[in-house]
Computed example of a mutant assay.
Amino acid sequence: MRPAYVTQEGLEDFIDRAFKEDLGDGDHSSLASISADAVKSAYLIMKEDGVIAGMELAPLIFSRLDREMTIERLVKDGDHVKTGDVILRLHGKVRAILGGERLLLNCMQRMSGIATKTAQLTELISGTGAKLLDTRKTTPNMRMLEKWAVVIGGGVNHRYGLYDMIMLKDNHNDFAGGITASVNATKKYLSETGRNLKIEVETRNLEEVQEALAVGGVDRIMLDNMSPKEMTAAVQHVAGRSETEASGGITEKTIRSVAETGVDYISVGALTHSIKSLDISLKAE
């Protein structure tokens, strides 16, 4: 279940930087108290119900510290787990278990929190045809894992960064002199640079929706901070001539009514910027 942006090189680079941050010149607590040849077992146990994510990281993390460590994954990414479930077992050098414990837990707890929230919101809009999107509101240097967790939870990734899609938000349009000027400048730029990028335009009212349609070449129209009534009117006016995306302060209480307006996508920044990590613990066997 790895999206294309989750590469082996990217994962290894992330783990390198994380160990440099955490281990420094050594885990002196373990070096002082645990003998180098001590070999024991440990397990991961769930302290909360939720959707698990990050299981694939365990062998990548612990193999750096103990190439002979055995790892038994008892669930897979995307599985629903319950409090008390043992999800993974380790057997290897104790120093390696302790050295990799916090990195694995930090990643899995956050990823599982994101996957759980994504699954909950996806269920709330089931049957409407709308798809749940993430945003760029991610933790610096954690975007790969956080967007991966959204996919594991059943959501869809929006653009990965500033380079793989054009998104003309209100500030772009205001600085450029309006939607028409902004879109026309963008089409000229894409033509001159030979880039083939989709164009999305943010709109704040029906008049701006009409302008985005009139200028042409817009692949998706964002309906930002509109009421369900306004969104319904906008979707009906667009009439399939462009994809539509709802955005702006959407919550568990409002997401169903937003989905029922007929929008194609609903983007929720809270999937990654305001998530509660799922509680997971590592215990000595």
Rank of each mutant, 00 (worst) to 15 (best):
L98K: 14
L103I: 09
G26H: 13
T128R: 06
Q109K: 14
N173I: 14
E101A: 12
V218Y: 09
S281R: 14
Q236I: 00
M69C: 04
L132D: 06
D164W: 09
S267I: 05
S242M: 01
L98A: 14
I280K: 06
R159A: 00
Q210R: 15
T232E: 12
L278R: 00
G99Q: 14
T180E: 15
Y160H: 12
V209E: 12
V263I: 05
I15V: 15
N171Q: 06
M142V: 12
N157H: 04
A4R: 08
E56Y: 06
R256P: 05
L31V: 13
L103W: 04
R95V: 07
G54S: 10
N106H: 14
G161E: 07
A149R: 07
D174E: 11
K20G: 14
M55C: 05
V215N: 09
L168F: 05
M108C: 11
L133D: 01
S112I: 14
N106L: 13
I15E: 13
T122C: 14
F62H: 14
M222F: 02
T135Q: 06
T139R: 12
L213Q: 10
W148I: 04
A115H: 11
K47Q: 15
D13W: 12
L57D: 00
A36H: 13
T70Q: 12
W148M: 07
D264H: 13
A214Y: 13
L197K: 03
L282P: 10
E56V: 04
E123D: 12
E202H: 01
S63Y: 13
T180L: 04
A270I: 00
V81I: 13
T186G: 00
D85M: 09
T128H: 07
R2G: 00
D37I: 08
D134G: 03
I266D: 08
L162Y: 00
T232A: 10
M231G: 01
E21Q: 15
L65M: 14
L103Q: 05
L105N: 13
L65K: 12
Y265L: 09
V183F: 07
L271M: 08
V235L: 02
Y265G: 02
S274Q: 13
G240S: 06
T139I: 10
P140Y: 08
A32V: 15
E12G: 02
S182D: 10
K169Y: 02
I199R: 03
K188Y: 10
R241D: 06
I179G: 07
K20N: 14
V6K: 03
P140W: 06
V39S: 11
K169I: 00
I255P: 03
M167A: 00
R195G: 00
L271Y: 07
T244G: 06
V235T: 06
M55R: 03
T135L: 08
R2C: 01
Q210Y: 03
K147T: 09
